[in-house]
Design a protein around this nucleic acid. Structure first.
Lengths: 243, 243
DNA sequence: TTTATAATACTTGTATACAAGTGTACTTGA
DNA sequence: TCAAGTACACTTGTATACAAGTATTATAAA
């Protein structure tokens, strides 16, 4: 693969991944980071050359990214859509929707094991903060919510999550990397929100859960204008390093 | 493509489709109809031979079906999961979830044009019933709900619908074909439910909408045990014709 | 008879080749 | 200068080839 530019996607997450998956993840990161600007037209042949690969894995990547709505496959070339602020708001709409749904089921089952698992993840997040590991923190943050969703055993709700996850992952990765550099004390509040989430599950308190969800999301959404956009600029200029 | 067996998917819906799409749709139908039983192992090479195509479009198809959770890609071969009763229930969970969400937005906008469009679709459905055209009826039925969802311009909710749609399409196609043969008078009630839905939108009456949605879904779900399972048997034995 | 090893017949993932179609740019004619 | 047509470069979709890996089966040794 081309090494003229640093990879944005954590390489350690791709240890056993295929070339197709690598291209998918890296392309997604570059699009969401704004390195590949929206409106740009991607050619299978050109991408294959850029990544020193054949068209097969590139095709696979484009199909996936199209299903995530960050590119649009047309007759001649794939047009980059990118991630707009509207998309980010919509994604949180969907997260609120499915996590609320999940919580409804949650209050009806035994959550002993779940909350223990969540506490473990919370401590992992704390360690990640301590060692300024943005990628690890992002991973655990996503895992936190995925663990909750998985706990109710609803395969179609999980499917929605899985379709949403890659784009969220990229977004959160970029966002957290920026925060670790600039607004480090944000993390105190993020941790508090997550702790509150666990409390809501333990107490089976619906309104408390909604409250913590909103807090968490408002926290992120409020930052979109300034932090996110500046982050996009940052990514364009720097090309973050992660090995 | 092999013509040793009749195709389950309407050929007229595939007029401009690629080989990959054809294989995707046909495989999905056969899996959901139970022609390909759950637990079966699909080989890319074997499927390519069966459909007189190469591995490329078959691969594409398997990737898509895996994203729909009706097959599972493993190291050696793709394992058929199929559509269980649990899946059908879960799909309706999700439909209730997103259509409720959509309705919340709907009550805040002008629905003049939407209801007119829906009335048109309703009349199309009536014609389809009159001429015993199960495929056309299924198409309009799905279009009815998709039109409602599209009207609120929420691309991520639409994404959820799009991911769900193919499986629902297959299921509804098979279900409706069976009903046209066996329980023809079901359609009176289906039409009433849809008319009620339009009324709910016009009146912006939330509880009326939920009521019609539940009626519509309960109607379908109640039939699952008997009708759906018998339909599966039917499909296995007959191999429906549609040209 | 059982166990270890080797041959085989699969599998996936990737590369490459080719056909058919589409847009662009250039040439030719007025 | 402008219009129509033609060649070319580039696109997708599909077929085929190949490498690397995995289960299975057959063979050989104990």
């Amino acid at each position: 693969m081309a090494d003229s530019i640093n990879f944005l996607y954590p390489e350690k997450w791709l240890l056993k991944a295929s070339v197709g998956d690598r291209i998918t993840c890296e392309l997604r990161m570059r699009i969401i980071a704004g390195l590949i600007e929206s409106g740009a037209i991607l050619s299978e042949n050109k991408l294959a050359a850029d990544f020193s690969a054949s068209r097969s894995p590139v095709r696979e990547a484009l199909k996936k990214l199209a299903s995530e709505n960050i590119i649009r496959l047309e007759r001649m070339g794939a047009v980059v859509i990118g991630l707009t602020e509207k998309d980010i708001n919509e994604i949180y709409d969907v997260r609120l929707l499915i996590e609320s749904f999940v919580f409804e089921r949650l209050v009806r089952i035994d959550t002993e094991e779940l909350t223990k698992e969540l506490s473990k993840i919370l401590e992992m997040m704390q360690v990640a903060i301590k060692y300024r590991d943005a990628d690890e923190f992002s991973y655990q943050d996503l895992l936190f919510h995925e663990t909750i969703i998985r706990s109710v055993n609803h395969s179609h709700i999980l499917m929605i999550w899985n379709n949403l996850k890659p784009v969220m992952e990229s977004f959160i990765l970029l966002s957290m990397r920026g925060r670790f550099q600039e607004t480090y004390n944000d993390f105190t509040r993020i941790m508090e929100n997550h702790a509150l989430y666990i409390e809501a599950i333990k107490a089976k308190d619906r309104s408390l859960m909604i409250q913590s969800l909103h807090k968490n999301f408002d926290d992120v959404q409020g930052k979109v204008d300034d932090l996110w956009m500046s982050q996009q600029m940052l990514a364009k200029g720097v090309g973050l390093n992660n090995d």
